[in-house]
Amino acid sequence: MAQNFVLNVSDVNKSFGGLQALTNINLQIEEGKTHAVIGPNGAGKSTLLNTVIGRLAPDTGSVLFDGVNLTGKTAHQINQLGVARVFQTPEIFLDLTVLQNIEIAALAKRDGAFSFKPFRSMFSETKIQQEAVDMLDDMGLHHLRDHPAANLSRGDKRRLEIAMCLIQHPRLLLLDEPTAGMARHDTNRTIDLLQRIKARGMTKVIIEHDMHVVFSLADWISVLAQGAIIAEGTPEDIKGNPKVQEAYLGGTEV
């Protein structure tokens, strides 16, 4: 029955001391879909994400990616399995150029977790370079290719980070509040970008509390409140769900 579920979170519980952060979480993420997890602050969104990527071990339950249990795996192992992650604050290589940032990501896909070829030259990595340049073109970052990533605007840093994930052709892309701290203009550009890459059939999980972002992107929404999933459904279902309005939207119309 679970053939086309890329990610299968079942019966996950997690508590910190006396605080029950996650209660019996079950999530099935369908292949090729954009699945949003929303919820008010403190609902357990970040804790959930951290258990998925192996940063936190769940007390009970399992997290299966493509049939492989992710609990106990390290960050690089999970990435090499095909899970890429975008952080709340863009995590990029600030001291390197934009092009180098992308090249590093492309090399990880090709070379694996470790490779030592000290006499190979970056000058002869023309295939990697071409791939990276194409990606920059695609992302509208080409004019910045030789600039240190530190000089980029917040929105461009986010685009760069997404580009670094995309060049690895992950099966699952995790986005943690991809528009957090962005001006409206940058938020809209980022939504455009995410809508564009939606067409590529990559499975995405978005953690977000900006409704505008969620409703313009998600195929399916899970609502998290106080560590438990209180509702699931299409954006239309969620918009009309009174339980959600009460817990999350505070009763106002969207």
């Binding site: 690089h76 990435n79 890429a84 992650r85 290589f93 600030l94 977790a113």
Partner: peptide, 11 residues
């Protein structure tokens, strides 16, 4: 430059 990003990039 960024060891966290390195790990999450698969290294």
């Amino acid at each position: 430059s960024n060891q966290t990003r390195m790990r999450f990039t698969g290294y």
